[in-house]
């Protein structure tokens, strides 16, 4: 089995002499990634900086990130899982069918060269983006690439990290884990947490229309969800907390304008490597922070009669 073998970004900066980006375009989507953390930095064990590192990019088309890469491998769309599986076989020294590899748009020699470089490096890292994790195969692709990184540790040091973005998504994930035990897709309707991605994930609940109200904080599902999901948001009472007008706020029943966290209100944001960073306001805002609004809503809800049966009323109900 695989798992998740990772590190904080400083380890990449100080040690990674082999960097592989898969299904992502950091030059445009994470524009500071190259310069702050990965290829351009001089690290403690990489005094030469860029010269001491090899960068490989795997994607289905040439993006702006290609210019920064030493090697670019163009995979046929939807064939990532096959390429990773072939790599895992080559890493273990198993025979791989040339014809099967060629269906992916790559040649066996290219993959063998990649594996040789991976085994030769002192510290390798794979960053994978939504071009891998959200295309054909989805979580199977993520699991495969994480397993590849885990198995590489039999030969040399290797880690993998998803290229997370979208504001503080890593922070939401962290808080959900310590309060509910699960990272996302959590259902609290029974008074305790249940987890079932595909059933309780936001997109599934919205598309099925299983909800009768929506509270949207720090996200714009109206811009990214499938149309049936957006229709559900428009149908039910939707409340949006956002500093600006968004696709979701336009179809919401209520939009509360809040101050921008990190500019006008304090807080914490988690980087993609799950390192927390303090946010300190530099400007004053006439608007309340998200936290203040949520606290006031909680206080107002607390004044209402509880709908949830309490232990003392439950027994009489059963009798």
């Amino acid at each position: 089995m695989g798992g998740k073998v990772s590190c904080t970004l400083g380890e990449v900066k100080n040690r990674a002499d082999f960097i592989l980006y898969w299904g992502g375009n950091p030059a445009e989507c994470h524009p500071r990634h190259f310069t702050k953390y990965t290829i351009m930095q001089k690290g403690k064990f990489l005094p030469e900086g860029r010269k001491g590192r090899t960068m490989v990019l795997v994607d289905i088309r040439e993006t702006m990130s290609v210019k920064a890469a030493d090697i670019f491998l163009q995979v046929r769309p939807g064939k990532d899982f096959e390429v990773i599986t072939a790599l895992r076989a080559l890493v273990k020294g198993n025979r791989v069918d040339t014809a099967l590899v060629e269906e992916t748009g790559l040649k066996l020699e290219q993959l063998q060269d990649l594996v040789d470089r991976m085994k030769r490096c002192k510290f390798g890292v794979i960053f994978f983006g939504m071009g891998l994790s959200m295309t054909r195969g989805k979580h199977m692709n993520s699991a495969a690439v994480l397993t590849l990184a885990a198995e590489m540790n039999a030969f040399t040091k290797f880690v993998a990290m998803p290229m997370r973005g979208h504001g503080n998504v890593a922070g939401a994930d962290m808080v959900l884990r310590w309060t509910t035990g699960y990272p996302f897709g959590v259902n609290l309707c029974r008074g305790f947490p249940r987890f079932n991605p595909g059933e309780f994930s936001t997109v599934d609940l919205l598309v099925r229309g299983d909800i009768d109200a929506a509270f949207v904080l720090g996200a714009d599902p109206g811009a990214t969800m499938p149309q049936p999901g957006i229709d559900t948001l428009a149908r039910v009472p939707t409340i949006v907390l956002d500093p600006k007008v968004t696709h979701t706020s336009r179809l919401a029943r209520v939009h509360i304008t809040t101050s921008v966290t990190g500019i006008s209100s304090p807080g914490t944001a988690y980087r993609m490597d799950e390192v927390p960073l303090p946010l300190r306001p530099v400007l004053k805002s006439p608007y309340p922070s998200d936290e203040e609004v949520v606290r006031r809503i909680i206080a107002a809800v607390d004044k209402k009669t509880a709908w949830l049966p309490r232990p003392e009323t439950m027994s009489s109900g059963v009798a």
């Binding site: 089995m1 695989g2 798992g3 998740k4 073998v5 990772s6 904080t8 100080n14 540790n153």
Partner: peptide, 19 residues
Amino acid sequence: QHLLYQLTGRKWGNLDVEN
């Protein structure tokens, strides 16, 4: 933990923290 992963074949989480 890497050794335990190899011994058990179960899943493995690793997070190296810089320096």
